[in-house]
């Protein structure tokens, strides 16, 4: 299991970096889907099977398909890809890269101070559902309102 965690982590890392440096939109999307699926595996390892399912179905499935549809509507061709290559000049990465490095160093330095080994305990769907529709009911309602607002906004914005 530990092995699976590191493997999936590596896959997620590599595919995510590929998204960041890719110039083709559709390729980047596929890398992103791989990254999400790898994260879903990590969830499974960490004892969150429901979250893993949702990650695969909703994130890697629904949301990414939405992306794909949008890309099809935009119909970005070779011209965009060339443009993308021209924009990604190496010197562009220096400033943000240094900043990001600083941030990463900070985060890691905070995280490595203590070492706790986690023995994952599986949290089942039933337990989660009881929590969701118990103490978190209000949050669920708000989330549904948010989705409705997103739906209306998307409909309105994309209208011709």
């Amino acid at each position: 299991m530990t092995m699976l965690f590191y493997l999936a982590g590596a896959v997620a890392l590599i595919s995510t970096i590929s998204v960041t440096i890719s110039t083709n939109v559709v390729h980047a999307l596929v890398y992103l889907i791989i990254s999400l699926l790898a994260v879903a595996v990590i969830f499974f390892v960490l004892g969150a099977p429901f979250a893993a399912m949702l990650e695969a179905i909703v994130y890697a499935g629904a949301i990414m398909v939405l992306f794909l549809f949008a890309m099809m509507m935009l119909n970005l061709g070779q011209a965009t890809e060339n443009e993308e290559k021209a924009w990604l000049r190496p010197q562009l990465w220096v400033g943000p890269g240094l900043l990001i490095l600083a941030l990463l160093v900070q985060l890691v330095s905070v995280l490595v101070t203590q070492r706790v080994d986690v023995v994952p305990v599986e949290v089942g769907v039933h337990e989660l559902s009881v929590l969701l529709f118990g103490p978190w009911l209000l949050a669920v309602e708000l989330a549904s309102m948010l989705l409705l607002a997103g739906l209306i906004a998307a409909y309105h914005l994309a209208k011709r």
Partner: peptide, 12 residues
Amino acid sequence: ISLVGGLVLVIG
């Protein structure tokens, strides 16, 4: 970038 700079500063 300004946002991230601020973030780095505050966390630092």
